[in-house]
Design a protein around this nucleic acid. Sequence first.
DNA 1: CCTTATGATTGGCC
DNA 2: GGCCAATCATAAGG
Length: 365
Amino acid sequence: MDDQPRLMHSHTGVGMAGHPGLSQHMQEGTGGTDGDGRKQDIGDILQQIMTITDQSLDEAQARKHALNCHRMKPALFNVLCEIKEKTVLSIRGAQEEEPPDAQLMRLDNMLLAEGVSGPEKGGGSAAAAAAAAASGGAGADNSAEHSDYRAKLSQIRQIYHTELEKYEQACNEFTTHVMNLLREQSRTRPISPKEIERMVSIIHRKFSSIQMQLKQSTCEAVMILRSRFLDARRKRRNFNKQATEILNEYFYSHLSNPYPSEEAKEELAKKCAITVSQVSNWFGNKRIRYKKNIGKFQEEANMYAARTAVNAANASSHGSQANSPSTPNSWCFYSDTNGYSFCVHIFSLFYLRIKSGGVVLFCLL
DNA sequence: CCTTATGATTGGCC
DNA sequence: GGCCAATCATAAGG
């Protein structure tokens, strides 16, 4: 009963900080009993604060309890929370909404693509596909390397997941700890739930930045692993003979304009079991190397021209042929040192004599 | 082991 | 973004 008016009084005093009467009292220092009493109060509070550490725990608890139980406490607390929110939260509240981090998304996508962060699967299909592509579709002979690669990848994966779990656990622990602490303090300090929320989001942001570092280093590890095991340049494999023949056939039958369209590239890629970019690489290399030394490729050019001619002949004589028109088994191809190419049909008396990419003779034996 | 062949990469150009 | 030219790095052959 004695407490309440004093509290009310001091509250009013705070609320009327700009009141001339109050400042006058402060400046006067000495004088009226009213001013003295207030000064006494402030002095008391200061004294209490200064000696708070000297108090016994029980005493402090009792004081705290008394404070918490005060009738005006909730109302005052709400007012303080409101003021705090208006002054502090409104300033920083605006830029709370953070856009989804592009860098983080990239890392996530990569980890998913490499089969590190996604669901467990037989070695990561994307990586396996990349490996198969890098090996020129040949496969089989480097399966040992692949299993080694997969083992290393799953090792990275395991480390990544345990670390991630550790971080998450630590984050949760820390969050609940801080929340409990703030909740506890919110009974005596003006801490609104919104502020607790804010603090939690700050903690989460801190931890997610740590997580991002983990993701980054995991990505780096995967990249190093990839470059070690799957770098196509290091693990170059020649295309198989059939693929090379298909590509050469196209090249020499389009020698005047050896630039396959995107569709043609896709078709060739499918036929050769290689990627479209490998087809592009092949044609790029072929064009430049052919141009550099046409003489060297003359023989090859003749041979493929002969094949094309034979195919055309076959097509026209037999109508449409279902079985592999590119390399008819019944034809044999030869070339001599003069740059002539021959192809002989084993059941007939025809042969082709070819030079410089064109059919010179087509005659009976 | 040296040379050649060949698929991939890189930097510059348009 | 495709192409060229130079280059790299490995495969293959002798």
